[in-house]
Design a protein around this nucleic acid. Structure first.
Lengths: 139, 139
DNA sequence: CCGCATCCCAGCCGATACTG
DNA sequence: CAGTATCGGCTGGGATGCGG
């Protein structure tokens, strides 16, 4: 479904504007991860932490609505990708802390563009949706 | 009939580095859309088109592996959000063309950061995954 | 040519209960 | 405290067929 494996990072010298600047598609690979329900939220929470590390329970408390199961799964995937580091302290009771890696910080920075776009344009999109739905309902 | 070009770019005063710069979370809203399997691919294909408009069939041909059903649904959602404009010509046989709106171009630009990140860092992530999986299999 | 309707399955994700 | 295990619902999305 995508020949994703051979990206051979040939430096990102170019672009900022449209036209010829899109060579590869941003899709798939990481984007699957980012598409997961909780991934971005969790990364974001980690980036906001006063201390750079957060305990599992703190992370759950601060991530509105996430279940223990999903937090575990999300963190496992992020750890596997190398975006988050897990620190395990075999005490009693056990303590586990998570922190962003350099890679994790990088992807959050890469998401800033989307973040800004959403902040300025989400209201427009929502209006568009209402208008569209309005137009549909009387058929 | 399209609210296209009003990407009122309200200045990008802030950011570039982490710490205090993340106020709102990028999650949800549009991100649900972007998380859909085909959304980004389709937007990307539209941006690559020599002519700014593409017929449904052309879009399907150029989007590797998408089904008719999913292309229809994806385009409907993008149209609803105002990211894509639909042009219907009631000929026989019918012809329908799609093109990016200003909003659609804008979100693609916003995705450039992610695009670049993926290009430079995806190989690292894939290596991380292999290492992690290696470490897991012998338990 | 374009797209809707139907059927159906895989997997995500939530709820809940159990361990070290 | 920080998981793991299990069950089950819901929905995204593929396959196929029909209709204007």
């Amino acid at each position: 479904m995508i020949p994703s494996a051979d990206v051979s990072g040939d430096r990102g010298t170019d672009e900022t504007n449209l036209d010829e600047s899109f060579r590869p598609l941003p899709s798939n690979g990481i984007c699957e991860r980012l598409g997961d329900k909780w991934t971005v939220q969790v990364l974001w929470r980690l980036s906001l932490a006063d201390e750079r590390r957060l305990r599992f329970s703190a992370l759950q408390r601060e991530t509105e609505g996430i279940t223990q199961r999903m937090l575990t799964l999300t963190l496992r995937n992020l750890e596997r990708d190398g975006l988050v580091a897990r620190h395990y302290y075999p005490e009693v009771p056990p303590r586990v802390e998570y922190e962003l890696t350099g890679l994790g910080v990088g992807i959050l920075q890469a998401l800033q563009g989307v973040n800004r776009w959403v902040r300025s344009n989400m209201p427009v999109v929502e209006r568009n949706r209402r208008v569209y739905d309005k137009g549909q309902e009387c058929r």
